[in-house]
């Protein structure tokens, strides 16, 4: 349990660091998927390998979602108002962060793949095939889930305290019109195409390899 929470906190911290480029409006842009696929597989795979139980990585991702969601739900309860001009987005409460990434889905895929091929960490050398499978699975599941979830977050159906979506929550100093709030940025020329997908999946595979090595190293620790 403690390790799972620790893993969740690490994931949440990294999510915070990538918050600006992870806004739902950017979640159809190529760089969002490329950066996410380069960063998260290393952590999630390492957590999955280190964990003693099944679905350990999914549990950690769930903790991360819980931590991030807590800010999402708690911050708007506090009254606040901007004190500096310009105030393009009037606020009377603290601004919530966007709904967290659905890392639990690719984490579940990583857990399942590691369970299907257990003991990979005991092999001599790097299990290249396993690295490729895990990396590609992460890329495929993460892209599919997050792409569609982002569309939901920008729709009016997500305009709710639970999801804080619908393009309603913005820093007060950003001059955004109604169209910009609910449209995807960088989805045109900087959007996901075959080349961008190739780079993202490659990044996920490399990152997964690092995660396997890191997880195996951590497993050797004696406490």
């Amino acid at each position: 349990m403690g390790l799972s929470i620790s893993g969740g906190m690490v994931l949440a911290m990294v999510e915070v660091m990538l918050l600006v480029q992870s806004y739902p409006n950017r979640q159809h842009a190529a760089d969002f998927f490329q950066v996410s696929c380069a960063v998260f597989p290393a952590l999630i795979v390492a957590i999955a390998v280190t964990g003693a139980r099944r679905l350990f990585a999914a549990g950690a991702a769930l903790w991360a979602m819980g931590l991030m969601s807590m800010w999402l739900w708690v911050l708007p309860l506090f009254p606040a108002m901007p004190r500096v001009s310009p105030v393009y987005q009037p606020l009377d409460h603290m601004m919530p962060p966007p709904f967290p990434l659905l890392l639990v889905a690719p984490a579940l895929a990583v857990d399942l793949l590691l369970r299907l091929a257990p003991g990979g960490e005991r092999r001599k050398g790097i299990a290249w095939r396993q690295v490729g499978e895990i990396g590609f699975a992460f890329f495929a599941v993460f892209t599919f889930v997050q792409w569609n979830f982002a569309s939901f977050l920008l729709s009016s159906a997500a305009d709710h305290w639970f999801f804080a979506g619908g393009g309603k929550h913005w820093p007060f100093f950003l001059p955004l019109d109604a169209h910009a709030r609910t449209s995807f940025w960088g989805a045109g020329s900087g959007g996901m195409d075959f080349r961008a997908a190739l780079i993202a999946s490659g990044a996920a595979i490399v990152s997964s390899g690092i995660g396997l090595w890191l997880g195996a190293s951590m497993k050797r620790l004696r406490v």
Partner: peptide, 15 residues
């Protein structure tokens, strides 16, 4: 205080 390009409508509450 109100910034020129934002106008008075985009000003915070008075201090």
């Amino acid at each position: 205080a109100s910034l020129w390009e934002a106008g008075r409508d985009a000003s915070p509450s008075p201090v």
